[in-house]
Design a protein around this nucleic acid. Structure first.
Lengths: 113, 113
DNA sequence: TGTATAGTTAGCGATATGGCTAAGCATCAT
DNA sequence: ATGATGCTTAGCCATATCGCTAACTATACA
């Protein structure tokens, strides 16, 4: 377990915005051009483009240009560091419970004497 | 699926900072007073206190004062909206794959004619 | 060629974030 | 009662974030 994961910073930050999550939601159903991504949001294109670049920097979306249209695709693998973190956290927590269990067990043994 | 989950905003934002994740890491092993939380971070107390309040607002940590000491405890249940979101996202993505599968299947049937 | 379409860049303003110091308050130990 | 301890508040500064408009580039289509 490293001390500091910049991946996680970018990942969690990218996901902390409802507009970006809405964009991801759309992309999880399949690739889309920028305009379609902006469509339901009510935001202007430059705003959406900025959000898109945040998603790209987090690795959550990959884009490529075909003619004048940029196609955006969800990259589910980018969620991995997050699920790993969750798993680590869960392990720590359960370790805590185990130690509590050990403690109680020990207390009971003490009593038997 | 609601349109906008403020919980998720707070949750992801809270987790987007390495210092806050370090604090959570410590708390996952068991409750701790503010000073112990600040200890290894190298940051000053007011800074840590601010981070703590972000974690509290996200529901990730609950605190209570006992004398002059504030005890902080990790609240794993607060992670639920996040795991739910992950699950939704996964479902969407797999739905996409299923539809792709249907499409290929259909293509193959067309060929058989 | 000329016009519509799709995206891009530059830059502005309001607000939020993350760090700090300094000063204050409340409790515990002597 | 006095000092040490643990937390708290107020307020400052630098930077980042999120929205916008305006102006620009590049491709497609007639």
């Amino acid at each position: 377990m490293a001390k500091h994961h910049p991946d996680l910073d970018l990942l969690f930050h990218a996901l902390s915005d409802p507009t970006r999550r809405m964009m991801l939601n759309r992309l999880a159903k399949g690739p889309a051009p920028v305009t379609e991504l902006a469509g339901p949001s009510g935001f202007k294109l430059p705003t959406i483009l900025r959000h898109l670049s945040v998603l790209e920097e987090a690795g959550l979306v990959a884009t490529q240009k075909d003619g004048r249209v940029r196609s955006c695709a969800f990259q589910p693998a980018a969620l991995r560091p997050m699920t790993d973190w969750l798993e680590d956290q869960r392990r720590l927590w359960e370790g805590r419970l185990d130690r509590l269990d050990d403690y109680v067990t020990k207390l009971l043994k003490e009593r038997e004497k």
